Simulated assay, not measured.
Amino acid sequence: MSTSADKGKRTSYCDWMAQLPPDLQNKPFYELAIPGSHDSMTYDLDINSPIVEPDTLKRFSKICCARRILRRWAVTQEETIAVQLDAGVRYFDLRVARKPHDSDPTRLYFYHGLCTRTDVETILKVINEWAERHPKELLILALSHFKGVPEKVHTHLIKFIKNLFASKLIRRNDTHTLKACWNNGRNVIISYDYPANQHIEIWRRIPYYYGKSMDPAKVESKLQMALEKRPPHSFFVCGLNLTLPEDSGILRYILRLCDNLVNVIQRSLPRLLLWLKQQAAAKTHPNIVASDLVTRDDFVSTVVELNISKHVEV
């Protein structure tokens, strides 16, 4: 891994964890800075899907232009999961839903406003294949929300996950360092935001802190307060993402005919990344940092270099 003197020379973050200095390989996961993807599957949103959220817009599901407008303001990522993985992203925010009236009772999709075109099991297979090719890269899959998912489908999904990732799954009682997991051939963590405590391979929900605002200054302020109160010895997601209002205030944004969420994010991302770089000198370092547009600008490199800053401090 490059030192601070070599900063800027790295051109690939495909295997950045495998190249961390030895002392960082023996640090607990929650002491590492890990790049994450917010609403990771939104590049795949289906314009023909019924509106899943917000509730105020569901009655417009049958209107094509309404779905198109919603999609413009729901897309937070531009690249596929495989490209995000190759870029160095290691945490994925995966929000799950069941499409109403689906002929397959166990088929699930991802969603953000609308459902995705690709189903959950297909994407998990893609991630599993990548994990096999990169055994030293720790992947954290945070499955959450589960809109319209009945209990029996949770049982099916958990069984599928355990069979698919098998011995690659990091258990809750394992030693949680990169070196220990490499030695045991494990590199996938499943965070499941639904009671599944009887499965030692399934982790509880990882707390996700975000600004809940479209104003970058408010996002920074709330994240700063969250970092200062961060619970020790556990995962912690610091969400750089902007958030649309959940009430009628959303109309102020989605009715902008010449704008979309990607453009708004792109305008705010440089400022948010500057705030993130400043955390290198702070006493409380971020753990998982999730963002929109993860393959743009220098998001991944900024997060990864926080590890090097800590290494130099030591």
Rank of each mutant, 00 (worst) to 15 (best):
S309C: 10
T295I: 11
Q266A: 14
D46I: 00
T56D: 08
A87E: 11
Y91T: 01
G211C: 01
W275G: 11
D44M: 09
S4G: 02
H112P: 06
W73V: 02
I34F: 05
V300C: 01
D55Q: 10
R72M: 10
R107A: 10
K218H: 06
S37I: 01
C14T: 11
G113K: 07
D23T: 05
N187T: 07
D259Y: 10
K229P: 00
E79G: 09
L255C: 14
Y109G: 09
N26M: 04
V294N: 02
G148F: 09
L269S: 10
V89W: 07
P207A: 12
M17S: 07
S2W: 05
V304I: 05
Y210T: 09
K159E: 13
P231M: 13
N307S: 10
D15A: 14
L306I: 12
A196P: 01
D15W: 01
E121F: 00
S248M: 11
E305C: 01
A87V: 01
G239E: 01
V149F: 08
I69L: 15
H233V: 01
N128S: 15
A74N: 07
L227C: 11
L32N: 09
L124V: 03
K7N: 10
A217L: 08
R117Y: 05
V149G: 00
I161M: 14
D102Y: 07
K277M: 14
I34P: 02
C65A: 12
R68P: 00
K147N: 15
D55P: 09
P28R: 05
S2C: 15
W73L: 10
V153S: 09
L169E: 09
H311G: 00
K152S: 15
I51C: 02
E151N: 14
I158K: 03
K159I: 00
S191W: 04
A180W: 02
H145L: 04
L169A: 12
L306H: 10
I123R: 08
E313A: 10
P28M: 15
I81A: 15
T155I: 01
R72A: 13
D23L: 07
S103E: 13
P54E: 06
Y13R: 00
